[in-house]
Nucleic acid binder design. Structure first.
Length: 641
RNA sequence: GCCGGAGUAGCUCAGUUGGUCAGAGCAGCGCUCUUGUAAAGCGCAGGUCGUCGGUUCGAAUCCGACCUCCGGCUCCA
């Protein structure tokens, strides 16, 4: 038979030849390096027999899918070691993931795992790797598979097979055996365990079986694997570096914010952090006002009646802080939309006013589960750069497009790359499907009209409408939602909102929810991680620091400070009796963008010696010129001087 | 909320099997130095070892409950 190689050449092989045979025919070096084979684009085991006329490519460590392959191998080796060390353990699933692999286990009652156990598990894994046990694939009937795993009391495997039968009507399942361990697995795998050359177990965590919180909690062991020790070390080094960019650490080091056990999930903003926060609020206003937004202020606390109208009482109550006064139930607002609807409904509206665009840096409280709180990225008390647009249905496309334009204009200022997601109707929702159809269609066409790339997340929409979300990742690669544009036909109906049309009849407006930063808290958190705490000059909490060389220059330093402060710059004087080297070092560590050094020469010449953070000495210049440069950089929102 | 881990000075961390173990560095404060582009020197002060309860002659150390934090899961801006 003949198969085609990636370069177009044909290879002649005996009938029934496998991928391994093909690799060996091409050359002994390739045979040694081969991990798997791609047959007509699909990744397969080397041991799989090839079909005549197939297009094949031998997969080696250089292939981009190879890492995922050996990580999956590593997951099986992990399960091999764990089943050996902990008799009676049940195994669930163990896939490769973006940064490594995991395997979920259900340990016997009373047995728990901690990272202290990694040493011996890793040692057992290393033995199986050293033994270079082949991965043997076997296709068996469903009955045989069920019998095998029932015999081993592996209920999760049994459940997986039963589901395969139910959902995909399979008649057979594939098993992979390496050494003493046999797993239900689709494959493919590398030829043997020996290919897992550099691996490390990283953490142990709980995970619900099949990701559902009413299922049992399993024990998940995370690890990673690479082809070389050097790659593994580089990854561990990268994780170490990421810790230095953790926004919680930067917030403390830069005196931006802090937390207290007396109000878990709520940041305390220190003066420098408050300056950053407020400047972002100012930017939001600056962006929104020319685009026709009008700012409003609405209450924090509402009668439960309001949340009945908005649907929150039914669908969101779990996340709300509820109190009462004179036996009336009240709740702190978890979103601004009900208040904005109420405000809209308190006045009459004509079609001539539409769209009405209410914006509000609204303070929200959400009763997030304690285990989900995470620095500034997941809090219970936060401010959204929120706005609600009330418009006619005809205006929806333009308004959604306007929101997308505003979003991209905003992210561009920070040099942020965002990922778009379109989320559609969830199971828990209000309103009939015809309206959902229209709303989802409107958002989708807004994206396709501008040829924007997005991921579709079915079922992830808000309970009142579908949404387009903007995502960014933190220093450890975790994804966080920032902005959102949500289309809502339900809440205006719940509030009985209306406007008088040109036809003199009452019409129901459509509402668009939109936030760009999302919450200021989360945005600042992500921005700190993105910049490593080196905020751009216009946003830096201390934009410049004046460093007098000796005490006799203190007076002049104070004059320089006042001059800059008069121009609206955030500036400090380091008046300590320390060496200049020390003052520079401390200013560098505080990531202050600009240092202005004042000594005898500068006093005499009316100059300042300018030094940029990580940019070194820029030389002396007249004070006026330094001020002009600083102001210019701030106005242009430049990265630095 | 669930699983696992952790909590010693403002920060980073020591503290072997319960018995001068309450320590170090940095930060802070004081004094001296008056300094030219990433750390001057000396000294002082600072913690009821997360909280509460228990075991013990004796607990930072052992046990329990609770609180908070960390890593995940579910959920979410």
């Amino acid at each position: 038979m003949h198969v085609t190689l990636p370069d177009g050449k044909e290879l002649e092989l005996p009938d029934g030849a496998t991928g391994a045979d093909a690799a060996a025919t091409i050359g002994p070096g390739l045979a040694r390096a081969a991990l798997a084979i791609r047959v007509d684009g699909e990744l397969r085991d080397l041991s799989a027999p090839l079909a005549d006329r197939a297009a094949i490519a031998i997969v080696t460590a250089r292939d981009e899918d190879a890492l995922a392959l050996i990580r999956h191998d590593a997951a099986h080796v992990l399960a091999t070691a764990v089943t050996e060390l902990y008799p009676g353990v049940q195994v669930a699933i163990g896939p490769a993931i973006a940064e490594g692999f995991y395997y979920d286990f259900d340990f016997a009652e009373g047995v728990s795992l901690s990272d202290a156990d990694f040493v011996r598990i890793e040692a057992a894994m290393a033995e199986h790797i050293a033994a270079d046990e082949p991965f043997d694939r076997r296709e068996v009937s469903v009955e045989e598979g069920l019998e095998l795993f029932r015999g081993q009391h592996q209920r999760y495997k049994v459940e997986l097979i039963e589901d395969l039968v139910r959902d995909q009507q399979v008649a057979t399942v594939s098993l992979y055996r390496n050494g003493p361990f046999t797993d239900l697995c689709r494959g493919p795998h590398g030829p043997s365990t020996g290919r897992v050359t550099a691996f490390k177990l990283q953490s142990v965590a709980g995970a619900y079986w099949r990701g559902r919180s009413d299922n049992p909690m399993l024990t998940r062991v995370y690890g990673t694997a690479f082809f070389t020790r050097a790659d593994l070390d580089a990854e561990l080094e990268r994780l170490e570096q990421a810790r230095a960019r953790d926004h919680r650490r930067l917030g403390r080091e830069l005196d931006l914010f802090t937390f207290s056990a007396r109000s878990p999930g709520s940041a305390f903003w220190l003066p420098p952090g408050t300056r950053v926060f407020n400047r972002l609020v100012a930017l939001s206003r600056e962006m929104a006002e020319p685009r026709g937004y009008t700012e409003v202020k609405t209450p924090q606390l509402y009668d439960a009646e309001l949340y009945r109208a908005s649907g929150h009482w039914g669908k969101y109550r779990e996340n709300m802080f509820i109190t009462e006064a004179e036996s009336h139930p009240l709740a702190l607002k978890p979103m601004n939309c009900p208040g904005h609807c109420e405000l809209y409904g308190l006045q009459r509206h004509s079609y001539r006013e539409l769209p009405v665009r209410y914006s509000e840096p609204g303070l929200l409280h959400r009763n997030e589960p304690s285990g989900t709180l995470h620095g500034l990225l997941r809090v219970r008390h936060f401010v959204q750069d929120d706005a609600h647009i009330f418009c006619s249905e005809q205006q929806v496309p333009d308004e959604v497009a306007g929101c997308l334009e505003l979003a991209f204009s905003t992210y561009e200022i920070f040099g942020l790359e965002v990922r778009l997601e379109l989320s559609t109707r969830p199971e828990q929702r209000i309103g009939d499907d015809a309206l959902w159809d229209r709303a989802e269609q409107a958002l989708q066409s807004a994206l396709t009209d501008q040829a924007l790339e997005y991921e579709l997340h079915e079922g992830d929409g808000a309970f009142y409408g579908p949404k387009i979300d903007f995502h960014m990742t933190d220093s450890l690669g975790r994804s966080w939602q920032l902005g959102t544009v949500q289309l809502d036909y339900q809440m205006p109906a719940g509030f009985g909102l209306a406007y008088t049309g040109a036809d003199d009849a009452e019409h129901q407006p459509v509402m668009i929810h939109r936030a760009l930063f999302g919450s200021y808290e989360r945005f600042i958190g992500v921005l700190l991680e993105h910049t490593g705490g080196e905020l751009p000059l216009w946003l830096a909490p201390v934009q410049a620091i004046v460093l007098p060389i000796a005490d006799r220059h203190l007076e002049r330093a104070e004059e320089v400070r006042e001059r800059l402060a008069a121009d609206g710059l955030w500036v400090e004087v380091d008046g300590r009796s320390e060496s200049v080297g020390r003052k520079i070092r401390d200013a560098e560590l505080r990531k202050v963008p600009v240092m202005l050094i004042v000594g005898d020469r500068e006093v005499a010449a009316g100059e300042v010696a300018v030094r940029a953070h990580r940019g070194g000495d820029l030389g002396a210049m007249a004070l006026d010129r330094a001020v002009a440069r600083l102001r210019g950089a701030v106005e242009q929102r430049a990265q630095g001087l």
